[in-house]
Nucleic acid binder design. Sequence first.
DNA 1: AATTTTCATGCAAGCGCTTACATTGGACAC
DNA 2: GTGTCCAATGTAAGCGCTTGCATGAAAATT
Lengths: 342, 342
Amino acid sequence: MAQNSSDNAVPTLADVAQRAKVSTATVSRCLNNPDQVVGDTRERVMKAVQELGYAPNFNARALAARQSNTVGAVIPTMENAVFARGLQAFQEELVRHGKTLLVASSAYDEKLEDEQVRALVARGADALLLIGYDRSPELYEFLAKRQVPTLISWSYAEDDDKPAIGFDNRYAMAELARVVLSHGHRRIACISAPTASNDRARGRVQGIRDALAEAGIDPASLNVIETPYGIENGETGFRQAMAADPDTTAVMCVNDVLAIGALRAAREMGLSVPGDVSVTGFDDIEIALLAEPALTTVHVPHREMGRRAAGLIIQMMRNGEAEKPVRLPTDIRLRQSLSSRR
Amino acid sequence: MAQNSSDNAVPTLADVAQRAKVSTATVSRCLNNPDQVVGDTRERVMKAVQELGYAPNFNARALAARQSNTVGAVIPTMENAVFARGLQAFQEELVRHGKTLLVASSAYDEKLEDEQVRALVARGADALLLIGYDRSPELYEFLAKRQVPTLISWSYAEDDDKPAIGFDNRYAMAELARVVLSHGHRRIACISAPTASNDRARGRVQGIRDALAEAGIDPASLNVIETPYGIENGETGFRQAMAADPDTTAVMCVNDVLAIGALRAAREMGLSVPGDVSVTGFDDIEIALLAEPALTTVHVPHREMGRRAAGLIIQMMRNGEAEKPVRLPTDIRLRQSLSSRR
DNA sequence: AATTTTCATGCAAGCGCTTACATTGGACAC
DNA sequence: GTGTCCAATGTAAGCGCTTGCATGAAAATT
């Protein structure tokens, strides 16, 4: 019954074909490879499409063509500006190439991430963008078996040959830690995100230890507070750090949001930053520059990473796989939250 | 050839059926309505599913079932924390009901929004969450014809009966403007997002005018600077406002991000806030509290809005349509960026 | 003018699922 | 023992599209 062009059901390819007096194959070609169809016919078809207000059914198309022109991405959370920003650039670039982005968030939960990845694959994502390296071998196997090109971002590990675009978290944080040390700080605390399934946080903490060791300080002496993402958690973390060692002179946080929390806690505790204690962040999100005092942090080129990730992933979809890991540079932004200790 | 269970292709329902020695129908039932299948068979099927690592093909499922269990949302941009936050809550609630969220962003561009909406519908979204009322009648007709339940959010208009959940932008801003007026300010400027296809921004500007009129001031005298979203644009806007009338004593911005920009510009210009000029925002994102001075703004319950939007939309999918618009309360957060003028 | 090549189009077989309807074999009542 | 009913399962027809192959006509070649 839905055959009849005059009923009010959603028009299908067949309706268009009927109206334009061609086969469905021709209509399909008109839409996907217009130059395979002669101008005359094409116009007739396009007219029918217009008149009917036809829009192709994406699911049917993906099913038949065995590809969806869709790229999936799983990020920890949309609420974190760094991901929002990187993804926005990623998407814009993708759109320029006629691809669509599908985003899912994992809430920093490994199991949920696993599910989301599988869901995106089930949805027919032609490729995937993931954050960081940490995930189960089973998931990597699954992806390999399904032959879904997967690009890792926000991390760069030279000893891993999976396609990736990111920065060396460990190295970048070590650099910052050296600067902190060069300012005379010796009693340093670190507020970190949970490191269990987060190689980025782990790398950053490790970076501090590296610098400590270089300076002849026992890396094990570093007081690390692990806490979930969020300004409030940064506050609590700071309090814990100061409680554990009241003589702490510098608190290095693995991201800006935690650092902002630290700043807030310091203010509430009546401690001056950087007078009494210095604070550093990581990411250089907008808030870092706005804070009082402005936050010394590691600048990460999130937008560029997103944009280039899109380029890489499109290449991977074409060439089947491969692509060497790409390492992006980071740099330190020295601002008022860090000062010398003497 | 893909029939053979021993080849390395992606397993399908048929593969599972064959291995469990049942029909595909039974496998399908096992997955979707387990209690229609007797325990014995079910176990056999589930075992086969496990062993094969089978995952249903979403596109095929959506095509056959004529529904996707997917809700689409089109937001202006992921980079704006208010949307990121609201959507996160929206998604969490959706997931609890077994629905998936598909997000697209329109970059505050009406034409792009139109396309994104159609794309989501083509993808088989069972329902849609949209921001604000402003869009072409054609699009509304399209949605009505396709019978896609659509919920409007971030806005509330009592004279419009489309399903919606939001707050009264005009009223909320009028309230804030009254407070500003009660602090003695008379020469007020407004930095707004482009109002052309943004009823939220328009409503807020109108709210200021309402309050002005009540106070016996000519609403037409309000100096409104329209500028795109972004901190930098807030800065530029502030400069323009002060250039247009150097005696301006209060600058009301339609969102916090613009207000932060205004704060920054004021600092650069050597103007003290709130000593020389007061600044207000709208949204109450985290940055508002962190800024120096902290921003007086209108608090909007973004998370609650997201969560309740999900509940509403699920109801709409069940009941076919309807639902009366819901109005959420907002309240004013008085902070240091606003002070009295005398 | 006959033959080959090329090109535009049609035909029809799927893609991997769901689901209306048909079938089967108990359990149960009589 | 026979008949009835129902629950469990199977059969097969699509869902709306793409695409390999077939077809026939026009263009190019000889």
